[in-house]
Design a protein around this nucleic acid. Structure first.
Length: 199
DNA sequence: CCTAGGATTAGCT
DNA sequence: GCTAATCCTAGGC
């Protein structure tokens, strides 16, 4: 944990940011862990909340890069995204899963004592574990309560289609730490890219 | 104004 | 595998 990401690190294509975030450490009030799964969403992407332009819900995604975009999912869950690209573009990275490492007691309590594997393995679970809520919408990620620390070494990253969407279902903008036991779902075999572990 | 449906999860069959 | 839970936005009239 040596390099804290700043807003300029997010001024890039969402897919590149999404891949680069695998292995990074995300903390909210000191609680969190290693990011093991992300998805990219862009403006000209029918699956994105930004598709069709600016609305009251998605306005944070059109704000400065390196801020949070928080949305309510299925009326139940709060999901966390990192805003990407230049201000006004409309792009983001959904944080889909963490390997919980910091503040485990707090996380377990918020997650009702569920098993370790189920604490942060899904976007709604991440939201609950880190106590994400609407007041964080638009909040800069390089200021408290957020901290995002860069991954320290190149890691094996799996790539595949995004989950739970009905449009652009084939776009391979889901990224995951290869072999992690904390993914929301496994990746198809052979969906690897970047450095891979020796067989 | 009205309402369909969603970047999900947990619990049950 | 199936589906209820639950809110609120976005889009239609």
């Amino acid at each position: 944990m040596t390099l804290q990401l700043k807003s300029s690190d997010f001024n890039d294509d969402a897919s590149r940011v999404a891949r680069r975030l695998i292995g990074a450490i995300l903390l909210v009030d000191g609680v969190g862990g290693r990011i093991v799964e992300t998805e990219a969403y862009d403006r000209d992407d029918p699956a994105s909340h930004c598709f069709g332009g600016r609305t009251s819900r998605n306005q944070a995604m059109f704000g400065p890069p390196g801020c949070a975009y928080v949305y309510r999912s299925y009326g139940i869950h709060w999901c966390l995204n990192f805003v990407c690209r230049e201000q006004g573009h409309g792009a983001g990275v959904l944080i889909r899963a963490l390997e919980p490492l910091y503040g485990l007691d707090v996380i377990r309590e918020r997650r009702d004592g569920r098993p370790l594997r189920e604490l942060c393995s899904g976007p709604g679970r991440v939201g609950q574990a880190l106590a994400i809520h609407r007041d964080y919408n638009g909040h800069p990620l390089d200021r408290p309560p957020f901290e995002v620390w860069a991954a320290e070494a190149p890691l094996p990253v799996s790539v595949g289609p995004r989950i739970g969407i009905s449009k652009a279902v084939e776009t391979p903008w889901r990224f995951g730490l290869t072999g992690s036991g904390f993914l929301s779902k496994p990746f198809r075999e052979g969906a690897k890219t970047g450095p891979s572990p020796k067989p």
